[in-house]
Structure formats: structure tokens, C-alpha cells
Design a protein around this nucleic acid. Sequence first.
DNA 1: TTTT
DNA 2: TTTT
Lengths: 160, 160, 160, 160
Amino acid sequence: MARGINKVILVGNLGNDPETRYTQGGMAITRISLATTSVRKDKDGNQQERTEWHRVVFFGKLGEIAGEYLRKGSSVYVEGSLRYDKYTGQDGVEKYSTDIIADEMQMLGGRGEGGGGGGERAARPPRQDYGASSGNAPRRQAPAPQQAPVDDFADDDIPF
Amino acid sequence: MARGINKVILVGNLGNDPETRYTQGGMAITRISLATTSVRKDKDGNQQERTEWHRVVFFGKLGEIAGEYLRKGSSVYVEGSLRYDKYTGQDGVEKYSTDIIADEMQMLGGRGEGGGGGGERAARPPRQDYGASSGNAPRRQAPAPQQAPVDDFADDDIPF
Amino acid sequence: MARGINKVILVGNLGNDPETRYTQGGMAITRISLATTSVRKDKDGNQQERTEWHRVVFFGKLGEIAGEYLRKGSSVYVEGSLRYDKYTGQDGVEKYSTDIIADEMQMLGGRGEGGGGGGERAARPPRQDYGASSGNAPRRQAPAPQQAPVDDFADDDIPF
Amino acid sequence: MARGINKVILVGNLGNDPETRYTQGGMAITRISLATTSVRKDKDGNQQERTEWHRVVFFGKLGEIAGEYLRKGSSVYVEGSLRYDKYTGQDGVEKYSTDIIADEMQMLGGRGEGGGGGGERAARPPRQDYGASSGNAPRRQAPAPQQAPVDDFADDDIPF
DNA sequence: TTTT
DNA sequence: TTTT
């Protein structure tokens, strides 16, 4: 019921291990720093690189998963929305921050630390997708229809 | 928990009124035909147009809303995923279909029939956004933090 | 030749008229402030709104078009990428900014001031699409093939 | 100058090696079959998978790169648009096809055959991004401004 | 701070 | 079949 679309799609690598905190209510909040690099040729024909560091935040179940499976160097697909915040720093100065609030995440098969060190973590599956609505109704798949698709559904033929 | 990303984003106009059916279980399934047109200059410098007609399907609550508010000519933003189906036609021949299964929809302020004729329909708000997960947990908004954002949450400070 | 994907998709309304500047080389740089609003129900069941104001920048030909056709209130689709900058303000304090560098723009049929006041502007078509690569090769359309699509092209049958 | 948005974003794996053809004019046309899999729980709580096979087409320089670097099993990010074609098969029957016309491609660090067999191919960098507008003007990066960003550009300070 |  |  929003007015407007606010969508961000990123594929990048983590610059550091994720940081996870918990609200008093026990909800996980995980932050990562995600790099995307673009390249251009400048007027002299030299390759010029520029890296953007995105602050991505995962809440709830997605925050738990991100905190558990992502690591420094991991390659990840993130979908979310932009959120701009204004706050007063400890120095009393107004500051601004930009975050991408993730609502979908999928690990890509990039390298990234193989899990060594952080021995308390579970093994990492090479690729998974997690939505902000994890735990919600799954969607989108239909059994292959034998007649015209999406038609004459029986009661159980829930198409997603 | 998917493997891969399958995402479609469309902004276009309906070529006809939506068609809504119901499963035996009472779930709405609404189909629309959505046009997007692209323009190019051919080698003679003439403007060449090409229109794609997308078959978009809305299920459940989203199907009810699409059936109620969209009309021939309506301008709409749709987000969804591609689904390819193979089925046997009434002539016994195998056929293929491609549908975009919508999971988000937002009416844009385009023209479109003003609702005249179909008197049984509700008045149409000029713009609304509806997700496939309508009825699910809302998301993404946080109260403007006074200190550092996303930190030291009290139990009620659920950030989305 | 980038490493990573950095993509933003917005549909929103301008909070003010665009501001256009020109580089010494004559390139247009147009900035807009674009609102997207999301709605959620808080724990008391009240509708809570939150509006994000996105700073969107258009360069070059896209900057000229944005400056000419967009107005306060205009509804617009924007596609671009995130860019974070750090700079020293006139007060000597380090500041941060986040911009969306647009590479595609399309006006939507929303309201928006009808052009009154800024009499020097051209009439505004209700919908147009402009890419950052305006002036570059058009793309994507193919003549409807009579045999299998994308096959046995003659030299002129350039499919885009 | 299109009317509407027609955008597809895919991350998936190739089911086979790419197939490249050339027009009489020498333009490369490469086709791949790309799998994306989604998972849902059915009413009995069982995991149900469904895989979509997308037909993706790359033209021109992008077609050459896709043909050279992609292989069966490769993981790839693709951005493009939907194109529906109708043609008459060799059996005289009208057929329909759906293709995604790619305009951006980026190899992801997934597995994929290590290049064995096709000895004539160049070494494959694990990740690269190629746009349909390859060879066109690069974009988006600006030198870090020392004062306010995007302001007072000298003639050479082309911001992208 | 990542990645190639 | 839409839209401009």
C-alpha cells in the first residue's frame, strides 16, 4: 500500500564479517558492508575504478541467516530498499546515514573465507535464497497444468 | 530458499479489462494483458515501434485487488517472476505459455477508463501498492532514530 | 566490466522543480528530489507512513530532458546506481552524501504542475523514456520472424 | 523513448554450453538456456521445487563475450527485456517463443565446467560485467569531490 | 574493508 | 488489445 517504488538490487562482496546485534525483543539485526565496483575509461584511455561501499541491514530471520552464513569476501545478491536516516552523533552534530534494508538475500558461489576460524558456525551451503518474508507463504510455483494453465483449478490446486 | 533470481519489472498499460476467475477454494486469479512499447531508429532513421504484450497473473488477495481496480488502459507497475508452462491444447497439440506471476502491483496515475460502465466497482484510488504478501508483516520503515540508527533498540522499537 | 551490480529502481514524485547546472564543458547536470512512501501498520494497528527522499542526478542529455520535462509533483520512473560521496563542507566538517545516478528515466502519467509558471518550457508529453545512452544504438526489437526466431539473419535483419 | 518498462533480472546457471551464430553482417547472436529454481512447501509440508528454463539471447559484442566465456554450469547475472515472437514452424504450425534479450551480463563466481574440452577458448576470468552498450561511453563514476559533490565542475571534470 |  |  505504498506510494512509489523504492528498490535496490546489489551483487557484491563483503568487506568484513557481518555484525549481528539483537533487539531487547530478541530480533536479530545484521549489518554488512558490501562492495560493488565499476570501471570506466577516462579521457586518456586509462581504466578507472570506483568502488561503492553499501551498508546493508538484515532484520529478523534474514538477519540471523546473514549473520550465520555470510563472511568477509562472500559474494551475495541482495534486494531491498533505501532508507535515509538523520541522527545526532555523540558529538552533538547531526549526521546522515543511508542504508539498504534487505528483504531478499542469496549467497552466490564466490569465494570468501571458507568458514575457518569461526568454528561455531554451521557449514555453508553454496547457494541459498532467503526472503524477508521467510516463514510466510511460499509462492509462484504451479504444478505443470495438463490443460490450459491457470484454469479450472480444483480446490487443492493452489497455484503457488 | 530458491536457487537463482527470477525477477520481472514492468510498467505498462492494460489492453483490456482484467479477467478474474476463482478456484474452487475461492482464491481469485486475475489475468491482464500488459503492453510495453519500445522505440528504435532503423537504419533509414525512421522511428520503429515494437510492442510486447505481457500476460500477467495475480493470485489471491492481489488478484482481487487487480480485478477490482485495474481497467483497460490503466497504467500499472508490476513486479513478479517468469513462469513457463507446457500444456496440451484442446486440439491435442502441445502448447507453451509464458506468464509473469505478479507479487507486487502498483497503480500509476495514467488514464484508463474512469470506471464508467462497470458500475459495480468501487471508486479507484489514484495510486496504490499491493504486495503478494498483503496481509503479511509490513516492512522497512523505522522510526527516525535520535541516536545512531539501528542500535540499542528497545523491545518495541521494532524497526519494520 | 564492473565487478558487482549496483542498481536502483524508483517510482516516485518530485518534491520540487528540478535544478539544472552546467559544467564548464556545457554538460547538463540536473538534480531532483524524489519521494517514495511506504506504509505499515504499527503494533496498535495504526497506519504508519514513512517517506524517503531520494537525491537523483541526471547527466548529459538525460539531464537536459529531466530539467525540461520534469516538474514539482511529476511522477517518474528512474533507474540508476548508488553513489556515495564524502566531501568537506564549507564549515570544514566532513560530510557524506548519497546520490542515485540515473541512467534511465520515464515520465509517468501522474499529476504534477501543469507547466504553469515556467513559461519558457516546452510542452510536456505525458510519457517518455530516455536512457543514459540516448543517442546510442537503439536495441531489442526484431522484425517478427517468419521462421524460427533469431536465425538465418540476412545482413540487414539486424535484430536490434 | 519507449512507453513502459520491460525489464528482466536473472541469476541462474546455464544448462548447456552457449550456441553462437553469426548474421551475414557478422554480428554474433548467442543463446543460452538459464535455470532458476524456486522452492516452496506444499500443503503437506514437503519441499517442492520448480525450475524455469529461460531462453536468453545476446547480440553483438555481448554475444561474442557470452559465447566465449560462458559454459554449461556457469553462474551468471543477466539483465534484459522480454520479447515474444510468433512464427511458423517447419510443420506449418504457428508457434510462440519467449526470449530475454540481454543487455547486461556478469559472470558470477559459480562453478561451471573449467573450460576443459573447448581448448580454443580464452582463459575465463571469474567475474566480469559486460553491457549491451559495450564500447559506448562509460558512466557513473565521479572523482571524489572536495567540496559539495556534483558542483562547479571544470571542463574536464566529467563526472562519468 | 571486498572482489577480479 | 494499451499507451503517447
